[in-house]
Amino acid sequence: MVIYGTALLAFCMLVGLVAGQLLGILLGVGKNVGGVGIAMLLLIVLSDWLRRRDRLPTPTQQGVLFWSSIYIPIVVAMAASQNVVKAASGGWLALVAGVTTVLACLALVPVLSRLGTGGEDNPESQSGAKE
């Protein structure tokens, strides 16, 4: 049933948010600390476990996949409901932040590529390249 997939997704999100909230209280920041990230990790682990035990039929998968495929439309809706008028006064900030970040990260690509090839006997990086 499709709802099993959606329920699994909902379960992961709720557990993640609760864990994030608890972590926030524990650390004394009073905010949700990484709840969405925890939920994602949980979904990866749980779905992998279910898949290996053959407990993840197509309908169940569809219950999750619908929500992941609707992700960009939701982001568009999110963008459309932000306080852009106020943000536009700081538009330069967005531009400067975006441009400098991209340039810095592009410059790091050859640096990291070279680092890896230095240790060619590293089996991990080789298998990563071959996959």
Binding site: V36, A39, M40, D48, V64, L65, Y71, I74
Partner: peptide, 14 residues
């Protein structure tokens, strides 16, 4: 938004 973002992790294999 959070639900959809969490859902994108579903495609990832361990």
């Amino acid at each position: 938004r959070d639900l959809a973002i969490v859902a994108t992790a579903f495609g990832v294999r361990l």
